[in-house]
Simulated assay, not measured.
Amino acid sequence: MFTGLVEVIGTVSKLEKQDDSASGGGGTSLTISGADEILGDAHLGDSISVNGTCLTVTSFDATSFKVGVAPETLRRTNLGSLTTGSRVNLERAVSAATRMGGHFVQGHVDTTATVASVTPDGNALTFRFRPRDPAVLRYVVEKGYVTIDGASLTVTKVEDGKDGWWEVMLIAYTQEKVVTAGKKPGDEVNVEVDQVGKYVEKSVAGYFEGTAGGEFAILEKMVNRLVDERLKALGK
Rank of each mutant, 00 (worst) to 15 (best):
F2H: 05
F2I: 01
G4C: 09
L5R: 09
V6I: 14
E7T: 01
E7D: 09
V8M: 06
T11I: 14
K14R: 15
L15H: 02
E16G: 06
D20I: 11
D20K: 07
S21F: 12
G26E: 02
G27N: 01
S29N: 13
L30W: 00
L30P: 02
I32T: 05
S33M: 09
E37G: 11
G40D: 12
D41N: 14
D46T: 10
S47R: 06
S47N: 04
S47W: 02
I48T: 07
I48L: 09
N51P: 09
G52V: 07
F60C: 11
D61T: 11
D61F: 08
D61C: 09
F65L: 01
G68D: 02
G68K: 05
V69W: 00
A70G: 06
P71S: 02
P71M: 03
P71Y: 07
T73R: 08
L74K: 03
L74H: 00
L74D: 00
T77E: 02
T77W: 03
L82F: 00
T84D: 14
T84K: 15
G85Q: 08
N89P: 07
N89E: 07
R92D: 09
V94F: 02
A96H: 12
G102D: 00
H103P: 06
F104I: 12
G107F: 00
H108Y: 00
V109K: 10
T114V: 14
A116F: 12
V118A: 09
T119H: 05
D121P: 00
A124D: 14
F127I: 00
R128S: 10
R130P: 04
P134R: 05
P134E: 09
P134D: 09
A135P: 04
L137C: 03
L137V: 03
R138W: 07
V140M: 07
K143Y: 04
G144F: 10
I148E: 15
T156R: 08
E159Y: 13
G164V: 08
W166M: 03
W166A: 01
E167N: 04
L170C: 01
I171D: 13
A172H: 07
Q175C: 04
E176C: 06
K177A: 12
K177Y: 06
K177S: 10
V179M: 06
K183T: 01
K183W: 02
K184G: 07
K184Y: 02
G186V: 06
E188F: 11
N190G: 01
N190Y: 10
V191L: 13
V196G: 04
G197H: 10
K198I: 07
K198C: 05
V200I: 12
V200R: 04
V200F: 04
A205S: 13
A205H: 12
Y207P: 07
G210F: 11
G210V: 07
T211N: 15
A212R: 15
A212F: 14
A217D: 02
V223L: 15
L226E: 14
L226F: 15
V227G: 08
A233D: 12
A233P: 06
L234G: 08
K236Y: 14
